[in-house]
Every structure is written in structure tokens, then in C-alpha cells.
Design a protein around this nucleic acid. Structure first.
Length: 244
DNA sequence: AAACTGTGCAACCGCTCGGAC
DNA sequence: CGTCCGAGCGGTTGCACAGTT
């Protein structure tokens, strides 16, 4: 038996919320409090999925939200938080009162990631053709899972790598995509020259996995950013290993 | 003025976690 | 201990709007 869907999708509304729906949701939550999202839509008279209601409330209807105009101070905080936590948006939101994880994530994706990339590329203008990183969607596939992140948070790189190696079991997934992912495999020397990666880290990853493509290394770096294994991560995402 | 392109953001989807049973 | 289910999270999509040609 498969898992029951979060909601009965047939006959439910999707897309933008109307003012009437907002009012219904707000009214219901003010009277009954948050929670029980699954049953809430029915009780509130909404033709929406519980998940959708929860998202709408948390991101837009709650009273203490700031909305729009991220200040310079907030921007700096986001940059620092991301360097510390990686893509743990909800964790970051906890450090920015009035801001939601979705808002921070959107702001990062549409503003800061570009800004950081531009600043970083300006730092490395001599290496224009190096970064043949595949799409974020592909990179995400290879990332260590949230489960692994939380379980390994703050642990040694070696443990994380060992776990990663075990999970992969030496058997790479078959198919054209994998081939595509491994396209552009680069030597350790090239990696060292092309990106500002710590040679030791790159070396340890390549030792562990054998040949890896540049995007895999980038992807792993992103994942490790949240583990606290770096003693320093600067504004551009450059990093150095902690003393392990 | 119309067509096209780029951007930002709201919302959705799929996965994981953790508690209850 | 295993299963189920509600809740939460992060990645991704798609639409509205602005800017450009």
C-alpha cells in the first residue's frame, strides 16, 4: 500500500490565493490556532491542500512578517548565515526576525547568488572557461541528504566521506545522465588551478571517490559548508579546512 | 504597439523527520 | 521494532510583470 497523499488533490484549488481565501484562513487560525493542517482547509471552508494553507500562513499571513525590502544589514547577515549553514534556509530564517525561509531562499537565488558569483568570477578573471558546472538540479542530486547533514553536523570530514562512500557503494547509477554528469572530468592539478579549493580537501575527496568531476567537488563543498568543517568561509564562498 | 526576453517571487512537489501507535 | 502519518524543509516551477528590441 502506497503512502496516502497529503491531501485529496481532486477538486482542490491551486495557484495564487485570493483575498477571500486569505481572510478565511486568517479568521480560522485566529480563532483556532495553528496546527492540524491536514484537516484545517475543510474546517476553514477552503478548497486547498493543508500544505498550501500552512505555506500561505507561514510565509504571508502571519502578523509579525516584515515583507520586502531586505536591508543591507539583513543582506550581510544572510551572506554570513549562508556561509555558516549552507542552504539551511529555515535555520537562517530563525536568525532573521520577520523573514521566512522562502523569502530568504528566494532572495539568495535571485539576488545574492548572482552577486556572489560575479564577485567571485571577478576574482578569477584569468580562469574563464574553468567552471563547467552542470545545472543546480543535477548538482542537488549528488548532495548529501539533509538526514546525513543533521546526523553528521560538526563531525569530521573523514566520517562524512566514509559515509558518502558507503552510501554510493562503489556502484554508480547507470544511465546517460551519469555519463553526462561525469563529462569533463578534471585532474586534481586542474581543479587546484581552476577553483580556489583547498588542495587537501580536493585530494581527500578524489582519493575517496576516485575520479570526480568539477561539479561534484563544487557540490560537495556546498554540502560541507553547513557542517562546520571549515575554519573560514569568506563572502565569495572560498573556504579553508578546520584543524581536524 | 507588439513581440520577445529576463527577472522576481509565490506556490507547488517530493522527500525526510519524528512522534504516535 | 516497524509502520503510518502529520509536519516541515529545500528544490523547483510557473506566472506576472518589467525591460528591451
Amino acid at each position: 500500500m502506497g503512502r496516502a497523499p497529503c491531501c485529496e488533490k481532486i477538486g482542490l484549488k491551486k495557484g495564487r490565493w485570493t483575498t477571500e481565501e486569505d481572510q478565511l484562513l486568517t479568521k480560522y487560525i485566529k480563532a483556532n490556532g495553528e496546527g492540524s493542517w491536514r484537516s484545517l482547509p475543510k474546517k476553514a471552508g477552503l478548497l486547498r491542500c493543508g500544505k498550501s494553507c500552512r505555506l500561505r500562513w507561514i510565509n504571508y499571513l502571519k502578523e509579525d512578517l516584515k515583507r520586502g525590502n531586505i536591508s543591507i544589514e539583513e543582506e550581510e547577515t544572510i551572506l554570513k548565515l549562508r556561509a555558516t549553514f549552507g542552504n539551511r534556509w529555515s535555520l537562517m530564517a530563525g536568525h532573521l526576525p520577520g523573514r521566512t525561509d522562502n523569502e530568504i531562499k528566494n532572495y539568495w537565488n535571485s539576488h545574492l547568488s548572482k552577486k556572489v558569483r560575479v564577485e567571485k568570477s571577478e576574482k578569477h578573471t584569468s580562469e574563464p572557461e574553468r567552471r563547467k558546472i552542470s545545472s543546480p538540479r543535477k548538482a542537488a542530486k549528488k548532495k548529501i541528504t539533509r538526514k546525513a547533514m543533521s546526523k553528521n553536523g560538526g563531525q569530521q570530514v573523514d566520517e562524512v566521506l566514509a559515509k558518502k562512500g558507503k552510501e554510493e557503494g562503489g556502484g554508480k547509477e547507470a544511465g546517460g545522465e551519469e555519463e553526462e554528469l561525469n563529462a569533463g572530468v578534471v585532474s586534481l592539478e586542474e581543479i587546484e588551478k581552476s577553483v580556489d579549493w583547498d588542495l587537501e580537501m580536493a585530494s581527500r575527496i578524489t582519493e575517496e571517490w576516485g575520479e570526480v568531476s568539477q561539479w561534484e567537488l563544487e557540490s560537495e563543498r556546498d554540502a560541507f559548508e553547513g557542517f562546520g568543517v571549515f575554519k573560514d568561509v569568506d563572502l565569495w564562498g572560498n573556504w579553508a579546512l578546520s584543524d581536524l
